[in-house]
């Protein structure tokens, strides 16, 4: 019944009448979203369509699902994709050891009624529900958030499963029949764009590309997520990472790296950036040896002196 419901049906106890309300909600969850992302999230909830988020690693794609789940006070179900992820790990599998044991027990008691045994053996009791099936479980009293993380890492067979699931929100288990969702889950797919997602899947989703944050946004995020960092140091950190992204790097640092770095600097008791402290902690923001070699020395010195001017 779920998919045919009016698109305006509330998704949970907290529903949002406007983009502004959602924006305020996200702020309360300490998530800094720009208007474009807030509008897209609002539509994801309102139109009950899956949302495909793409962007560089570490810009907060996965975080959105977590924030939505706590904002709507609803469970988060996460499917981490990897190459070779198959239906048995993504949708469901039968619990073979328990089925075997059950057969043995029946045998021992001698009460073997073939039809009844077959019926019991392939009943819901022996079904191991994996994340996708959990998300559309009819027993749920509210729509969960389903996070399908790094969908680009799975192979194309999985996309075919997803197509079916995301258009009808139902799954067919041959032995059991079709199971469909009572509440359409809030689906967030993320991709680092290591490969292009199939167009058919993209068309079923709303789409949003998250860029590296602007100076202002990065500063706001840092203030919200790591308030213990002094205003002065925060300015320096943000100037440094913003300028670092302009350097020709194999893997520029994301927002996640900025936050890690800020915490690392705090742990090191840093008051102001210096070439020494940058040198010691460069491994927190740069994850490739060539990038570290590239930045260490002149580039770092230059960036530090610019950052100190900005955060004086």
């Amino acid at each position: 019944m779920s998919t045919t419901e009016a698109p305006t049906a509330p998704v949970g106890p907290a529903s949002f009448a406007s983009v502004d309300e959602l924006e305020a909600g996200l702020r309360a969850q300490r998530y800094v979203a720009d208007r474009g992302l807030a509008t897209t999230l609002f539509l994801t909830l309102r139109l009950q369509k899956p949302l495909l988020l793409e962007g560089e690693a570490g810009v907060g794609k996965t975080e959105i699902a977590k924030v939505l789940s706590s904002l709507l006070d609803t469970p988060l179900i996460r499917l981490q994709c990897y190459e070779g992820l198959d239906a048995a790990s993504a949708i469901y599998e039968w619990d073979y050891p328990r089925q075997m044991l059950y057969l043995r027990t029946i045998e021992a008691t001698g009460a073997m009624d073939r039809e009844a045994v077959r019926h019991d053996l392939f009943g819901e009791e022996f079904l191991l529900k994996r994340p996708l099936l959990q998300a559309i479980d009819a027993a749920r009293d509210r729509a969960p958030v389903l996070l399908i993380d790094e969908v680009d890492r799975a192979d194309q067979e999985l996309e075919a499963f997803l197509l079916e699931l995301l258009s009808d929100f139902q799954v067919t288990v041959p032995e059991l029949g079709t199971m469909s969702a009572r509440h359409v889950p809030i689906v967030i797919l993320t991709s680092n764009r290591t490969r292009e997602i199939h167009d058919a899947l993209k068309r079923r989703c709303l789409y949003h590309w998250i860029d590296f944050p602007t100076f202002e946004k990065e500063h706001r995020i840092l203030a919200v997520r790591a308030p213990e960092v002094s205003q002065r140091l925060a300015m320096q950190i943000v100037s440094f990472t913003q300028a670092l992204r302009e350097v020709d790097l194999f893997k520029p640092p994301g927002m996640a790296e900025t936050l890690d770095w800020a915490r690392a600097l705090l742990a090191l008791g840093t008051v102001d950036l210096s070439e020494q402290v940058v040198d010691d902690s460069l491994g927190v923001i740069l994850k490739y040896q060539e990038d570290v070699d590239n930045v260490r020395g002149d580039v770092a010195r230059n960036l530090v002196s610019r950052a100190l001017m900005a955060g004086a």
Binding site: R35, G36, L43
Partner: peptide, 23 residues
């Protein structure tokens, strides 16, 4: 039609989320 039609940016983001599928 789900967003506030008086806000140009919301209308724009709504249309973009539905149409654009790659940066």
């Amino acid at each position: 039609s789900a967003v506030d039609v008086r806000r140009r940016d919301d209308i724009y983001f709504a249309a973009r989320a539905a149409i654009v599928t790659r940066p």
